[in-house]
Nucleic acid binder design. Structure first.
Lengths: 346, 346
DNA sequence: TTGTACGCGTTATCAT
DNA sequence: ATGATAACGCGTACAA
């Protein structure tokens, strides 16, 4: 047991490094802080000794005195969803490169979050928080934040969170869904679609509400009938069943616009494998997100793309800008969408 | 600006709560520590004041003195993979319930990890670390850990990491892949498969190596020919191409055993949509993992299941046991696999 | 460029 | 059950 304890690298403190290198403890601190002034040769010696002693500055102690945790909180309702897992992946990679670690919290399935959990998160003092969960309003979230300014994704109609107290500070990623939706509708119209169904996402989801609203608006502008709206929740199974119901109980449709790609997959499978209909000949299908699975041959989905790389860059920019200017007015980054044409419309 | 600053909930310290509640700072600390002794009435008053002042104990300060960060590090090569995102999701949920937050780190695609990143992680002083990345050996990882004892997933042949210094302490989750693989082979054999191909995962992956080894062993035991081995990397696209090559350049096969479900999807799509072959009539396909997509109608995949819930429970058990007994001998939890029969063999 | 002294917010120790 | 005091490991103002 002792044998193992010996082998285990003991944590060295700055004091030990200082003693070993014959310098003051402050010098050690400076050696690890690039902008501090220190004779280069001395710094090198210190870093050398630090390596030998297996020393790493303690983030907790550092955080205590600097007020910066180097932690970015992410509140996620469902890590498994392909879109979110992609985003978490890319964001974590990007933040890692900037010296931040990702602190992951899971919200409940209905997009709400236990106040106890928020309180808990607060204790970690994250430098920034990204809420993938859309029904914790900024005011509420800010009540659980100290220095962190949260980032919210908003959509074409900028008035979202209008109910929020005006004094609440949060930064915004504006996603212009209109572009992509308009292109999709034009394509569907061009291929003769007349009776369209909208296969919704989670009712509480703002993204979903805005997609539905924008779709209706676009159809109206182009002189088309309002869509049949099917309740959904972004899952394959619900989409599958809703599609069956649409054709068995309802009057069917000649095009389905799904709130997300996974829902579109459910619709396609229901059409092809249970209703005996062809896609795109009998029914055209469009998705939203352009997740990697969208190009899989079984689906080959025509879909509205949100550019992930661009999105992540924008989020990282927001975080860095805010940390540099904690009291600045709200920042906004904008993101476009566009249609990716594959094989489910035509 | 001041207006906003006022609205922003200022962080209260234990001292402020103590003053407001007319108690000592120590009492406040005790009020938040359930096993500390404190007159209930007094505790209630303190908690009440704390709520009014929006006070939350600072984890960094707490961690500094207790030596426990309440952070669990997860080193992941690819958050997007359906299996891993599922596992991260479930694990985060379970750990949250136990009072731990998830600290996510992304390893490189080749399953290796930058020493700088490991050093960085070390600074956060995680209470435990789960390495989904299989080619950082325990010795190496432990060199970057202080109190945390890492958890490794090992497979049927327990001799893995034999090269690791024997003194290194790490806990093990033993996954018995043999059961599921044996059932799959029996089913394939029963349906007349004779020439089998193994569609591999990442070459560096231990899970993959062991799946291949166990498959070969099982085929030999049952008097069947050794499988044709196709190089893969767990992705759809590579699996798709490898399957095309197998039938166009190679001699084909009457059954494909894929190292993971996503690879099986790629194989199925190549067979059906490009080679004009039927699954399961012409070629039978088996996957591994049983991710949610496996039951989608387009695939309806017969696959070897690893029970996620059970797996997560085992991991959480390992973490808690180790924290309770930091110096105990290595712990091992065991997990079985079993075949889920759907429509791609028959 | 370097070192001294202090403080960050909390819990552990040891009194009472 | 409660309170005073000393840590925990680090960064930073200030003086040299």
């Amino acid at each position: 047991m002792n044998e193992r304890a010996d082998k285990k690298a003991a944590r060295a403190t700055a004091d030990q490094v200082a003693r070993e290198a014959n310098v003051s403890r402050v010098a050690v601190s400076r050696a690890f802080n690039p902008n501090a002034s220190l004779k280069p040769e001395k710094r090198d010696r210190i870093l050398q000794v630090a390596r030998e002693l297996n020393y790493t500055p303690d983030m907790a102690a550092r955080s205590l005195v600097t007020g910066r945790s180097h932690l970015v909180g992410m509140i996620v309702p469902d890590v498994c969803s392909p879109w979110e897992s992609q985003e978490i992946d890319a964001l974590t990679t990007a933040l890692q490169a900037e010296g931040f670690a990702t602190l992951l919290f899971k919200a409940k399935a209905d997009f709400s979050m236990d106040p106890r959990l928020l309180t808990y998160m607060r204790g970690f003092n994250p430098d920034s928080v990204i809420a993938f969960t859309e029904n914790i309003l900024p005011d509420v979230l800010c009540g659980f934040l100290d220095r962190a300014v949260p980032i919210y994704v908003i959509y074409d109609d900028v008035k979202q969170f209008a109910g929020a107290a005006s004094g609440t500070l949060y930064d915004r990623l504006l996603v212009r869904q209109k572009n992509g939706i308009e292109q999709a509708v034009a394509l569907l119209q061009g291929y003769g679609a007349r009776r369209m169904a909208y296969l919704g996402g989670k009712a509480q989801s703002l993204a979903n509400a805005e997609r539905e609203r924008t779709l209706k608006e676009t159809l109206a502008e182009r002189g088309m009938d309002a869509p049949i709206v099917l309740a959904g929740d972004y899952t394959y199974d619900t989409a599958y069943q809703a599609t069956l119901d649409l054709f068995r109980i309802g009057e069917g449709a000649d095009a389905i616009f799904a709130a997300n790609d996974v829902g579109a997959f459910g619709a396609i499978d229901a059409l092809r494998h249970e209703l005996g209909l062809s896609v795109p000949e009998d029914v055209k299908v469009v998705g939203f997100d352009d997740i990697p699975q969208a190009h899989w041959k079984s689906y080959n989905l025509t879909t509205v793309r949100i550019d992930l790389e661009e999105r992540v860059r924008a989020l990282v920019r927001l975080i860095l800008m805010r940390l540099r200017a904690p009291d600045a007015e709200p920042f906004t980054e904008t993101l476009n969408t566009r249609l990716i044409v594959r094989g489910t419309v035509g």
